[in-house]
């Protein structure tokens, strides 16, 4: 599989169709991958594709806006992210050549549990049990059935661990703002102190910002070093977008916040 990929990449570079290829290379062991940027034909052998290619590489596209880029996509969501970035005018469609590896690995990855694949967790290391116990694999609907107090307690416990490293933001393809609101000083929306309320505020506002633009690529969820189940939040906003506005991200619909219907949500505010 990696061979075909390398061949495609070699041709693209050799024919000068692209200036750089963004793909995956092996990480510190066989179970991890890291992003790689290849502009020399000799380096294409570094490219690999396997079930551990979990990062969403489209996050690197906006900074390469002016270059002709070939990009490897390992899952459908990564592909959707690229289209979203095109829609949001962050990259130029004609500058991007997509090397779609998603279909090739989907059969492989379906053999692994989803949560496991999300984080590359080994079956043996026992973390999966803890994972389930904490309710991380809970569906949005189930979570909504909990009482307000239970929900609050759940998130309080989660966000207590948050160290505000902003890894979730760094890996998110649609978090491309030149200067994130949390960095602002005039006004200061958040100060640097890490406390649970501020942590929560940050994630909540980030969710509102990626509302309708999140492709459920799980990059934030995977990147979180303290394992906050951010995917529960991204699934929640995807559900609301569908239920409230019939909106599914990445389908070319107008973003719910930049349009409206006069005869909708009539019961919402009275």
């Amino acid at each position: 599989m990696s061979k075909t990929l390398q061949e495609t990449a070699r041709n693209l570079l050799a024919e000068n169709k692209v200036e750089v290829i963004i793909g995956y290379a092996q990480g510190y062991d066989a179970f991890h991958t890291r992003p790689v940027f290849i502009s020399n034909v000799e380096d294409v052998s570094k490219l690999i594709i396997n079930e551990y290619c979990t990062n969403n590489l489209s996050v690197y596209l906006p900074i390469h806006k002016k270059l002709k880029v070939g990009i490897v996509t390992a899952k459908e969501q990564d592909l959707a992210s690229i289209h979203e970035l095109i829609n949001e005018h962050q990259i130029l469609e004609e500058n991007v050549i997509i090397i779609e590896a998603a279909k090739q690995i989907s059969s492989l990855s379906s053999e692994l549990g989803e949560a496991q694949r999300d984080r590359g967790i080994d079956e043996e290391d026992g973390r999966q049990e803890a994972w389930k116990k904490r309710g991380y694999d809970m569906a949005v609907e189930e979570f909504e059935k909990l009482s307000a107090k239970e929900r609050e307690t759940f998130w309080d416990k989660e966000f207590e661990r948050c160290i505000r490293c902003y890894a979730c933001r760094q890996v998110c393809p649609v978090c491309y703002c030149p200067d994130c609101f949390v960095n602002r000083t005039m006004p200061k929306y958040l100060n640097e102190a890490v406390d649970m309320n501020k942590n929560k505020l940050f994630s909540l506002v980030r969710m509102l910002h990626v509302f309708g633009r999140c492709m459920d690529c799980r990059a934030c969820n995977n990147a979180c070093p303290v394992g906050i189940p951010l995917r529960l939040l991204t699934k929640k906003i995807a559900k609301d977008a569908l239920e409230l506005f019939g909106y599914v991200s990445g389908q070319g619909q107008e973003h719910p916040f930049s349009t409206f219907e006069k005869d909708e949500l009539l019961e919402e505010i009275r």
Partner: peptide
């Protein structure tokens, strides 16, 4: 302009068409 990403959210939403890219 330093902070604008050019995502056109404002451009699409403005009720008056008062935003230009």
């Amino acid at each position: 302009p330093l902070l604008c990403s050019g995502c056109r959210m404002c451009y699409n939403a403005c009720p008056y068409g008062a935003i230009e890219m």
